[in-house]
């Protein structure tokens, strides 16, 4: 067992625009503010947080593969790739640690093309619609979930 536990928080396409893109849905906090909040919360609960964002599907797949070697947990907001990417589903299936799917809004309350998630069935748990609060709330909870593994 690793002494310092590590979580990858992986964010998908367009999340780099947080704070400016449709703030009525996604809020006014930027991704950097959320990242800082996650790292702070991680320090409080003894978890190293590696916070990542990419607009490229393949890069996200590679980060998940890297997490297999380096991380105890993955929190993934695959954004639009949630609804399209079998590659991300397959990569997540190979990750043996604890996996959480996260969405800022609740995709089930939005357009019907967002109702199918290829991520949900490949993870342990799902959080949606809690706003940007969802991020640091799951970081807060992760050590507890990892202690059950």
């Amino acid at each position: 067992m690793k002494v310092n536990r590590k979580a990858y928080v992986i964010n998908g396409p367009n999340l780099n625009l947080l704070g400016t893109r449709e703030p009525e849905i996604y809020g006014t906090d930027t991704l950097e503010i959320i990242a800082e909040r996650c790292r702070d919360q991680g320090r409080k609960v003894g978890l190293e947080v590696v916070f990542l964002q990419s607009n490229y599907e393949g890069e996200i797949v590679e980060w998940i593969q890297q997490a297999i070697k380096e991380a105890d947990a993955i929190v993934i907001n695959a954004a639009a790739y949630t609804h399209t990417s079998v590659a991300i589903h397959d990569a997540l299936k190979t990750f043996p640690g604890y996996k959480i799917e996260l969405h800022i809004s609740n995709p089930h309350l939005r357009e019907s093309f967002r109702h199918v998630s290829h991520v949900s069935s490949a993870v342990d748990a799902v959080v949606a619609g809690l706003g940007v609060r969802g991020y640091d709330l799951v970081i807060d909870l992760l050590p507890e979930m990892l202690s059950h593994d």
Binding site: S105, N106, A125, V126, A128
Partner: peptide, 27 residues
């Protein structure tokens, strides 16, 4: 439980315009 592992496409909440309903499963 993670309900998405039990059955495909089981959750389609009714529409609530201008409101947000949070969703948590699997913990």
């Amino acid at each position: 439980a993670n309900v998405f592992r039990q059955a495909a496409n089981v959750l389609t909440p009714t529409n609530t315009p201008n409101t947000e309903i949070g969703f948590v499963c699997g913990f």
